[in-house]
C-alpha cells in the first residue's frame, strides 16, 4: 500500500467490476425498502394500477393515519413496544446481575453455577418440549412468555462477566469499607462502569424483541397479544380477505376518495413501513454498537 503502483488494464477492469458489483448489491439491499416507502405515500389508486416505479406520485400521508384505525393495529403496536421495553430491560438486568455474581469468587459454588448456565448454550430441548413446558407453566396466551425467557442470558452473561472482571477491584473495595452491600455496589459502581457493554447487549436485545415473530406463532392464540410482526404476516397472507374488511370497516366511515382509501396493497406497504421504521431509525445511530457486538461474538464464539 505504501508504494504507488501504476494501474494496469487488469487493475482498471477489476475496479470497474467491484464498484459495479457493490453499487448493484447495495441498491438491491436498499431499493426494496425505498420502493415500499414510496408506495406507502403515493396515491393508492396509482399503486393499485401498478404505476409507481422509482419515485412517489400524488404524495399523501393519510395511509399512516388510516392503518391505525384498523382495530387490531394500535394494540399490536402497543404489545410490540411493551415487549421490546420490558424484554430489553429484563435482558440487561439478568445479564449484568448474573455477570456480576459470576465475577465474585466468594459466590456460593460459583464454578458449578457457572457451568449450569453455560451448558444451556449447547443444548436445547426443541420446539415441542418447550411448548409443553410453557403450557405447564401457564405461559400460553400470556404476555409473560415474550419477556420471561429473557431472564435466561448465558452468552450475554459471559460478556458482562468478562467486562466486569476488568473493572479495578479497588473501586468496589472502598465502597465495601463504607458499608455498601452487594446490591448497592452493583447499582452504584458496576452498572455505570459497564455502560459500553450494556449498550451493546441492549441494542441486540431490543432488535431481537422487536423482530421476534415465532413466539407469537407458537404460544399465542388470542389476538390480544399479537405483535406488529405477526399482524403484518397475517395481512400479507390474507390480502384479499383484508381488503374486504377494510372496505366495510374503515372506508365507509371515511370519504370514498380512491387516492387515499386504504387498499390491501397500501395497507401492506404502510404496515411494513410502520414495522421497520423503528429499526431503520435507530440503526444508523447505533451502527457502531452492532459492529462491536459481532466482534465480541467473534472473540468469544
Amino acid at each position: 500500500m505504501a508504494l504507488k503502483e501504476k494501474k494496469t488494464v487488469k487493475d482498471i477492469l477489476f475496479e470497474i467490476a467491484i464498484y459495479s458489483f457493490f453499487t448493484l448489491f447495495t441498491l438491491l439491499c436498499i431499493f426494496p425498502f425505498y420502493y415500499i416507502f414510496i408506495s406507502s405515500i403515493s396515491s393508492n389508486a396509482l399503486v393499485d394500477r401498478g404505476a409507481i416505479f422509482f419515485y412517489p406520485r400524488s404524495i399523501h400521508l393519510s395511509n399512516y393515519v388510516s392503518v391505525f384505525k384498523i382495530k387490531t393495529l394500535p394494540q399490536a403496536a402497543f404489545i410490540s413496544v411493551a415487549r421490546t421495553v420490558i424484554g430489553t430491560g429484563l435482558s440487561i438486568i439478568a445479564a449484568s446481575f448474573m455477570g456480576y455474581c459470576m465475577s465474585k469468587p466468594e459466590y456460593w459454588h460459583r464454578k458449578l453455577v457457572y457451568r449450569f448456565i453455560i451448558a444451556t448454550m449447547y443444548f436445547n430441548a426443541g420446539v415441542v418440549p418447550l411448548y409443553l413446558t410453557y403450557r405447564m407453566l401457564g405461559l400460553i396466551d400470556n404476555f409473560l412468555v415474550y419477556v420471561l425467557p429473557c431472564l435466561n442470558q448465558s452468552f450475554n452473561m459471559v460478556l458482562c462477566k468478562t467486562y466486569m472482571e476488568s473493572i479495578p477491584g479497588s473501586l468496589e473495595e472502598s465502597a465495601e469499607i463504607d458499608g455498601a452491600g452487594y446490591f448497592m455496589r452493583y447499582m452504584r459502581i458496576i452498572l455505570p462502569l459497564s455502560m459500553p457493554i450494556l449498550a451493546t447487549i441492549a441494542i441486540f436485545a431490543a432488535v431481537g424483541q422487536w423482530n421476534a415473530f415465532m413466539d407469537t406463532v407458537l404460544y399465542m392464540t388470542s389476538t390480544k397479544y399479537f405483535t406488529l410482526q405477526y399482524t403484518l404476516n397475517l395481512y400479507l397472507k390474507k390480502a384479499t380477505a383484508l381488503a374486504d374488511i377494510l372496505k366495510t370497516d374503515s372506508a365507509a366511515a371515511q370519504n370514498m376518495n380512491l387516492d387515499t382509501m386504504l387498499t390491501a396493497e397500501s395497507t401492506r406497504y404502510t404496515i411494513t413501513m410502520v414495522t421497520i421504521i423503528p429499526v431503520l431509525m435507530i440503526y444508523p445511530f447505533f451502527q457502531r454498537y452492532f459492529i462491536k457486538g459481532i466482534m465480541i461474538g467473534a472473540v468469544k464464539g
Partner: peptide, 29 residues
C-alpha cells in the same frame, strides 16, 4: 456473603432451570 449473593441471584437461576432444563423432561413424551 457468597451465600447471600447466591440467594440474590436465585430468580435468574430458577428461570434457567425452568426454561432450559425442565423442558428436557419433555423428551419423555
Amino acid at each position: 456473603a457468597g451465600r447471600i449473593l447466591f440467594a440474590m441471584s436465585a430468580p435468574f437461576l430458577i428461570a434457567t432451570l425452568l426454561f432450559c432444563y425442565v423442558p428436557m423432561f419433555g423428551w419423555l413424551y
